[in-house]
Design a protein around this nucleic acid. Structure first.
Lengths: 245, 245
DNA sequence: TCTTGGATTTGATTTATATCAATCGCTGGA
DNA sequence: TCCAGCGATTGATATAAATCAAATCCAAGA
């Protein structure tokens, strides 16, 4: 691990409040690894041996069942993922693959579990992280069950605009086929939906999103703080898709 | 609160490992309340002031958006709900209403937050509870995105059979319209689906489920440990019926 | 016992979405 | 530069699911 990377990790909410010696101890047993693009580094069902921290690149979390698969989330630097599995000492519920060349820190799950018993500040951080993650998935489930695909697309585009500082134009952070899977629809359906949304205030030019009529788009998406955030505590780690640990 | 209720609460994983004095202190600031059937005792968006513990009856957690609503979960004794919102000191993401006359213990969220900073055993229990909850919602999201409604119904029926000790016949624990909403479909669609499932090994007689061909039903449902459980750590909160094999 | 309201079922139809197939367009490598 | 391959789009069609409407069933209360 490079020395300049430690502060980046230390800055995460999860590690921010723990004792310095404990943080160093945890990092001492961790190690970095670089993965090429498209590598499946976690397979669902495998035992959760390491907490993963993305330092560079990006990672897709996806789930599989009966020859089908779907994207659950995309994790971007600097953020952790699969915390819950590590804590439960249980099999991963999701697989993970790199979307590009990606640098990851691997923190042994056993050390992690020992640490939050030793460092009560860290325990509080873990509690907060898990509670936030839980709420994030609940929001996700709500959008899946309460909105149809058109509404999900509209609210996604609007939310991304807000993440881009309310910009009227921005670049989609992920490929459309991945976005389609994340939103629970087929690429064809997403493509068609995007076209029909042109009459509702948003236009696509390749990967570029141009919001032409924010009021109209908002009326369709009906953004809701209890689904789309912003979440209670400011997170703003600039991830393209909701963060999942 | 009745004295005989304390041991029931104490027995929950969440409270099992904390110091006795701390448990008593937490309970001292809590109080019981009885709600009639059909009462909406939590409205989504309200500040999370109390952790709720169901002692008797049952509670539906549901979400609303744009004049639509859907059932997210049903909580039965003895269990807690909306822990994450209390911890984040954030608005509830879900509403709650009683499905029958229900007795609830209300634990002030502020006491809860103070307590896991004071009692590190309790902190560990909260961590485990949240991690388990998180994984439970992820499973739910997976079934929504990976299975169609027919498959969701089939796997639900099979899962309930296992919860009933593998019984070939059992009574649905909830009304069908609520089940439909939980499974993300309309009551009409559920009704029709149940009928067509008769050719796949399961028959409905009112609220009674009769599994006529477990192999066939299993082939359709394709139960998966990473979606349907059983979860990692043995929970066994009730329904641990002796298995005859 | 009779009544009534809600739950459930059934039927007809519409709408949403997936699937299959083909084309287009871009990008990276030979 | 040209080509191969993949993502994106478009069109045609099939399937899944929702909606609308009505009938039936059933349990709680008068």
């Amino acid at each position: 691990m490079r020395p300049e990377e430690l502060p980046e990790i230390r800055h995460l909410h999860l590690f921010r409040d723990m004792g310095q010696a404990n943080f160093e101890s945890l990092m001492a047993s961790s190690y970095a690894q670089n993965f090429p693009q498209g590598l499946e580094m976690i397979r669902q069902g495998d035992p959760a041996d390491f907490l993963h921290i993305v330092l560079e690149g990006s990672v897709e979390l996806f789930a599989q069942w009966s020859n089908r698969e779907c994207t659950m989330a995309v994790v971007r630097p600097v953020a952790t993922f699969i915390l819950a599995a590590c804590i439960r000492d249980a099999p991963y519920l999701m697989s993970a693959r790199t979307l590009e060349r990606t640098r990851i820190i691997l923190v042994p799950a056993s050390d992690l579990r020992a640490m939050f018993r030793r460092d009560s500040e860290f325990a509080v951080s873990v509690i907060n992280e898990l509670a936030a993650s839980y709420r994030s998935v609940v929001r996700n489930a709500k959008t899946l069950k309460l909105r149809n695909s058109r509404e999900r697309v509209a609210s996604y585009l609007l939310r991304q605009s807000l993440l881009a500082g309310g910009a009227a134009s921005y670049i989609l952070p992920v490929e459309k086929r991945l976005l389609a899977s994340y939103l629970g629809m087929t690429p064809e359906n997403l493509s068609r939906t995007l076209r029909t949304l042109e009459s509702d205030g948003v236009k696509l030019d390749g990967p570029r999103v141009i919001i032409t009529n924010r009021e109209k788009l908002t009326a369709l998406a009906q953004p809701d703080r209890l689904i789309d955030g912003p979440d209670d505590i400011a997170d703003a780690s600039g991830s393209a898709l909701p963060k999942i640990s």
